[in-house]
Design a protein around this nucleic acid. Sequence first.
DNA 1: GTGTCTGCAAAGTCTTTGCACCATA
DNA 2: TATGGTGCAAAGACTTTGCAGACAC
Lengths: 152, 152
Amino acid sequence: MRGSRAQCWRGRFQGGGYRLTKPRELILDVLAKSKEHLSAEDIFLSVHKIYSNIGLTTVYRNLELLVEMGAVAKLHFGNGKASYEFSRDGEKDHHHHLVCRKCNKVIDYADFMKEEEEFLQKIEKGLSKKYKFEIQDHVIHFHGFCKSCQTS
Amino acid sequence: MRGSRAQCWRGRFQGGGYRLTKPRELILDVLAKSKEHLSAEDIFLSVHKIYSNIGLTTVYRNLELLVEMGAVAKLHFGNGKASYEFSRDGEKDHHHHLVCRKCNKVIDYADFMKEEEEFLQKIEKGLSKKYKFEIQDHVIHFHGFCKSCQTS
DNA sequence: GTGTCTGCAAAGTCTTTGCACCATA
DNA sequence: TATGGTGCAAAGACTTTGCAGACAC
């Protein structure tokens, strides 16, 4: 992790009374590099390659913290394990998902994002008001069969 | 379950080489009555009240079957357990969800469904074509804080 | 130096699997 | 009666918790 980015995170951690530790730095690195949704184990394995002291527990604990901080989104695609990815910051890199019911493959798409975001903002506004619900994020998954599972 | 509905389900099961058994009948009953997303355990407990022979295993196995048949949707709200509800049939009773990050409460809403469904159909068409993905269903969750968890 | 963080091991939760018996068509 | 279905118990997968030692600030 380059210094400036580390400093930025250090600040965010310290703001909450937390510290920037090696495991945290490396977990953030992995998430930043991959840009894809990763399972806790994926992250553990990636970090483990360059820092074999890391424990899976630490990964879980820090992911939980990052989710609480709003830095990371925790997603469920229905394969029994949670996936994690950086949350949308000002819409950049934001995407939605196509989830295959058979092989559990997940395709990220960003094709209609402009239309979708516009539309969702409108909906969000209406829902916020009606249900007094403070909306922070959304998940859109389309379920079905991917190209290679359509044999039926 | 009234006779005609049972017959309808009997047909759907037999079409796939399956049978209509007591546990299946009761599980369907519970799902039909509640109209809400239920966990496997919720369903187990409901059925257990009137048929104490039921086993949790049977509930899981039948929910899996119903999901495969496309009759039931399996959802994950991030609390560690799966939720089940009848899938949209011709859009009736279809709804989306607001999920609270703190207390895990889930609010079903059906407020903008007409607009949303129209919009989603357009998107689905585009995605199907581009990714050769056969879309069967979708999930829309808004995450944030419900009325009573907004203290912060 | 103090309070947070960490890794290990163990426990917990939800879900699936193996197997012998039972019941539907 | 032939298959598919069931319940129980055990195993499996993912995640969380308890605790003593280590580290960031």
